[in-house]
Design a binder for these strands. Structure first.
Lengths: 129, 129
DNA sequence: TTTTTAGTTGACGTTGACGTCAACGTTACT
DNA sequence: AGTAACGTTGACGTCAACGTCAACTAAAAA
């Protein structure tokens, strides 16, 4: 049942539109941990997912460290009750942050909507608003 | 009818939780243009709004240049038909970008929701889900 | 009048996130 | 055996977005 697909560094680079340098840099910063075959890196689906999460994080303005924090929330690396509770709290915090960002973006969009409407009114001053 | 409120640099810094250095830096980058009284900067409500927009941009991961682009969309600095049409298109593009970000964030939130639910299930394995 | 208390202008330092070589090692063809 | 094509490890460069510090000015308070 385990997926034995694997990728080279340039395959992933191509797929996600980043350079190989970038991917190696992420490894240097401990965001990804590909295995080695000889001296070459080989990437498994799990690594691909991590890369995907990092890049999604980047798109919404997270730093690499922040993305790493979120990725770490995915692996329940501890197994006792307290750690689960702590994890749930952390996740709650992250979600709140994200909701704040959602708010900012929604405001920005509706601001732009207003400006756009104003523009259109300038163009057609005669039409009923 | 004009609002003659004005602010010092440190008032704004305090209000928005940034340093005065940051605000001066934004001026150096042509994001804000306060007037001078002697050699001191004096900030008007319009400047405050610009600062607010910049910081909102930062929170959602925009660069200063990107924020500036958006801010510029607010001032219909041109007045002919073509310029309005161009402006409307630009705004549409920005909105689309923002919708993509919205999507990323929503996905991230629902991912975290799932992880959190899974955590809770680990804690109470007996309860009906 | 001296001393705080803002504020100002440089100039240089720093940090994060990579880019850009250079020098080298495999593997795969020809 | 030679030569591409792809990979590797340093090491250094770069750019944005500030931080830090020094040396100065102006106004206000003690």
């Amino acid at each position: 049942m385990e997926d034995d697909t694997s990728y080279t560094i340039s395959q992933l680079a191509e797929e996600f539109g980043v350079t190989t340098r970038t991917i190696r840099f992420y490894e240097e910063k401990n965001l990804i941990h590909p295995r080695r075959e000889g001296q070459k890196r080989i990437y498994k689906p799990a690594d691909r997912v991590r890369l995907h999460l990092i890049l999604r994080g980047k798109r919404i303005g997270l730093s690499l460290d922040e993305s790493l924090e979120i990725i770490d929330l995915y692996d329940p690396s501890g197994n006792n009750k307290d750690q689960y509770l702590a994890l749930i709290r952390k996740i709650e915090e992250k979600k709140q942050q994200l909701h704040l960002q959602l708010n900012d973006i929604e405001h920005m969009i509706s601001d732009l909507d207003r400006v756009q409407e104003q523009c259109k009114r300038e163009l057609n001053p005669n039409e009923a608003q």
